[in-house]
Design a protein around this nucleic acid. Structure first.
Length: 141
DNA sequence: GCCAACGTTGGC
DNA sequence: GCCAACGTTGGC
């Protein structure tokens, strides 16, 4: 299987894109949902993910690369099933792509982000990925 | 095994 | 601040 694409949410007041850029790399910890966990376990080195700011901003702001596959979440109790992956920033989007714009775009409205709004780690189809990147080339409205 | 109650996420 | 969606817990 070739490269796969993902979307990962973080509340920017807890951990933002700028925090990840500052750190150079980070582990995606704190995920406590089984579907999200399974998605992280399916990630391969080289897969790419959108960094989405939930709650504040509600927009995709950057592209990350998976640099280490799933391993136990050090913030979880020993023996728990929770995992993390390690990510690195690739580049910021020239212009953020907002949830509003995604919902309004028929080519994006079927994204997992929309279909299952509470899922914090979700797959993104290749066509959706390409379309979001294209949209990020120019500002909204 | 069902389901009501409760907690959390996240958009509005 | 509210609420919809969804997950978890615990009584039965």
């Amino acid at each position: 299987m070739g490269k796969q694409y993902w979307l990962m949410k973080s509340e920017p007041d807890a951990y933002s894109w700028d925090d990840l850029v500052r750190d150079g790399s980070g582990i995606w910890d704190g995920v406590r949902n089984h579907t999200a966990k399974q998605n992280m376990q399916a990630m391969k080195v080289g897969d790419e993910a959108l960094f989405y700011h939930s709650n504040i901003g509600k927009e995709c702001v950057g592209i990350m690369r998976i640099v280490e596959t799933a391993f136990p979440d050090p913030t979880a109790d020993a023996g728990s099933p929770w995992v993390v992956v390690r990510v690195e920033p690739v580049r910021p989007l020239a212009h953020p792509v907002s949830l509003k714009a995604i919902k309004a775009d028929p080519r994006l409205a079927d994204m997992e982000l929309i279909r299952q709004s509470r899922l914090s780690v979700a797959p993104v189809r290749a066509a959706e990925w390409q379309h979001i990147l294209k949209r990020s080339e120019q500002p909204e409205d």
